[in-house]
Amino acid sequence: MTRTLGTHGPRVFPLGLGAMGMSDFYGQADRTESIATIHAAMEAGVTLIDTGDFYGAGHNEMLIAEAIEGRRDQVVLSVKFGGLRDPAGGFIGIDNSPAHVKNYLAYTLRRLRTDHVDIYRPARLDPKVPIEETMGALAELVQAGYVRHIGLSEVSAATVRRAHAVHPVVDLQIEYSLISRGIEASILPTLRELGIGVTAYGVLSRGLISGHWSRQAAVGGHDFRAHSPRFQGGNLDHNLALVEHLRVLAADKGVTVAQLAIAWVLAQGDDILPLVGARTRPRLTEALGALDVVLTPEDLAAIEAAVPKDAAAGSRYAEVMMAMLDSERG
């Protein structure tokens, strides 16, 4: 039971583990439980672990290194680079210039305690640096053996074509869920034309459509969701109403809302690998249960009717962050 990332990418377990929340953006995480969750994922067969060198300013990479010590050959490490942080944890830009790409990787290899990264990708398009220059640097790292495959993240169909012309791209990491379906218009068809896979993050829309979120859920200033339009005011009420529609369908199937939502992404094509951001073993176990959910054409039609395309209220990021997304340009 595996899926291949792109035409020539690695074969991986059909769910990947996104480790970001173990270090950043969702408030305090428990280190012991995080490591135990990574271990449980590996024991269940999960192979791809996704991180970024700016998650916790390197903390996430070091956490993963500790968790996979002695078992490096069992995992496919997917790493994003380019996000610049200040000492207070704020974002201060993107830099994907060739010299910095190589510098980022030098530190990543040391923090991950490995001699190579399986998939290396810019986290966002750097508007100051042509994608061809970034890809050229990445191609050199592949040739030198430090990187096995090149991926992209949150870029448009046009940028994918330009990048792929320089060096083969195995996958595009991008948000995709029942309530974030923007890739279906032009990005997904382009990827399928070129033989490039999808690593889908946000499959539960940061917990919003997990079935566990409520109006009373409190988020602090260090939680990304405190600033997300979909979690604000009337938008939240509207979106939680959509979740209740899903809850009815999930109950009919004898599964949880989260399992139904993940299963929907899995059903969109074998070239799509959902990333689950489980920070605890119970949430991981629930997510893995989605692999046993079989959705019939009637089920899929009912889900589409319950949560129509573009049904969500609010954008998936705050306005300033949306402006940074090349993927929103088509």
Rank of each mutant, 00 (worst) to 15 (best):
M1S: 12
T2W: 00
T4D: 04
T7F: 00
R11A: 15
G16I: 01
L17H: 09
L17A: 06
G21R: 03
S23E: 08
D30G: 00
D30A: 02
T32W: 04
T32G: 10
I38N: 06
I38Q: 04
H39I: 03
A40N: 03
V46I: 14
D50Y: 04
Y55S: 13
A57N: 12
A57L: 11
E61C: 03
L63G: 13
L63H: 14
R71Y: 10
R71M: 06
R72K: 07
L77E: 03
S78A: 15
K80E: 11
F81W: 12
D86W: 06
A88T: 14
G90E: 06
F91C: 11
I94N: 12
N96F: 01
S97Y: 01
A99E: 15
N103Q: 15
L105S: 07
L109K: 04
R110C: 02
L112T: 03
T114H: 14
D118M: 03
A123K: 06
D126I: 02
K128L: 15
L138N: 12
L138E: 13
Y146M: 12
R148V: 10
H164T: 07
H164I: 02
V166P: 09
V169T: 10
V169F: 09
V169Q: 05
S180C: 13
G182E: 14
E184I: 05
I187H: 12
P189C: 04
R192Q: 14
L194H: 09
I196V: 14
Y201A: 00
R206A: 12
L208H: 10
I209G: 14
I209T: 12
A217R: 11
G220R: 08
R230P: 11
R230K: 13
L236H: 02
L240R: 10
H245Q: 14
A250H: 03
V255W: 08
A258N: 01
Q259Y: 06
A261S: 15
A261I: 04
W264R: 02
D270K: 03
D271H: 13
D271I: 00
L273W: 02
A278D: 08
R279Y: 00
L284F: 02
A287D: 15
L291R: 10
A301L: 08
A305F: 01
V307C: 11
A311M: 03
A313I: 07
A313H: 12
M322T: 06
A323L: 01
S327P: 08
G330Y: 05
